[in-house]
């Protein structure tokens, strides 16, 4: 399969990419290209130009600061997150998500966190984890920068709030102090596949009695048109000790909040709803076991 014909622009800065995108609405950014190449080959998209940002300096940093983690630039590959020892300590859900995406070749040079968000596949892994961790997306556009929570960034299947001329410049993850645990659990049909259901959990525990002070739950592939935050399930945990009964209640609520659709990625809506409950329970228990 050959991609359709397109022009090629290699830019030296994100600002230049913004200028090209602003002038030509059919141009598209080439970051890792691991979703873009299949879309091109299947002729699902026919961009006028590909804007290659791979030679823009300083687009692949992971900066761990006191109160936040900045995953910087549009070129942080899944593999970089996977091998970052600090992230395994702070938010294991992040590298745990990375290692469950695609396969080594896809993660190595290809897939990027920003690209995955911008592509907004409804069964992508990152949105669940980034929603649970209350991350936001920094966007660079013709009129400057703005910041949007990941939860609001994806508006539907393959659709985001990115407007004409806008690109993702950074992903910002707040760091909660104290005892924080996290996990991402994914049900997939085969190694490296998209999620049938994916659930990410973040729990902040209060030291005296181990009760849950704050909770974040993000779910992918089961929200109908987009990944979602399971607010009712979070509420079921907050202020309580995470006993089996409390966990069961939260998992039940997550299931009720979900609205999966039947499709070829994992079967019937009914099955997926049942799996939301199972995966939520497992994600909470896995996080607590750390």
């Amino acid at each position: 399969m050959y991609p359709p014909k397109f022009g090629y622009v290699r830019v030296a800065s994100l600002e230049d990419a913004v200028k090209v995108l602003e002038a030509d609405e059919n141009a598209k950014i080439l970051a890792g290209g691991q979703s873009l190449m299949p879309m091109l080959k299947l002729r699902l998209i026919r961009p006028s130009y590909l804007i290659d940002i791979n030679r823009v300096p300083n687009l692949s940093y992971i900066n761990i600061e006191g109160d936040k983690i900045r995953i910087g630039g549009a070129l942080v590959r899944h593999h970089q997150v996977e091998i970052n020892r600090e992230l395994w300590k702070i938010y294991p859900a992040l590298p745990e998500t990375a290692i469950q995406i695609g396969d080594p070749q896809i993660r190595n040079l290809g897939g990027t966190m920003a690209g995955s968000l911008a592509h907004a596949d409804p069964a992508a892994d990152w949105p669940a984890t980034l929603i649970a961790l209350r991350a936001s997306v920094r966007i660079l556009g013709p009129s400057g920068t703005r910041e949007v929570p990941v939860e609001d960034f994806i508006t539907g299947p393959f659709t985001t709030v990115l407007g004409r001329g806008e690109v993702i410049s950074e992903i910002v993850i707040p760091r909660l102090g104290g005892t924080v645990k996290s996990s991402y659990v994914k049900l997939e049909r085969k190694a490296g596949d998209f999620a049938v259901v994916g659930v990410a959990v973040m729990l902040k525990l209060s030291p005296p009695d181990g009760s849950v002070e704050d909770a974040g739950i993000g779910i992918t592939a089961a929200g109908g048109p987009r990944p979602f935050r399971a607010r009712e399930a979070e509420k079921a945990l907050i202020g309580r000790k995470p006993t089996d009964d409390v966990i069961e209640d939260a998992a039940e609520r997550a299931m009720k909040e979900s609205s999966p659709i039947s499709d070829i990625r994992g079967g019937s809506a009914e099955y997926k709803r049942a799996m939301v409950k199972v995966m939520t329970r497992r994600a909470i228990k896995n996080a607590l076991s750390r």
Partner: peptide, 18 residues
């Protein structure tokens, strides 16, 4: 699969110009 700048990639997912 080939090795590109030290890492394995699937060469059907990479443009020659990259």
């Amino acid at each position: 699969t080939v090795i590109m700048n030290g890492v394995s990639v699937k060469s059907c997912q990479v443009l020659a110009v990259q």
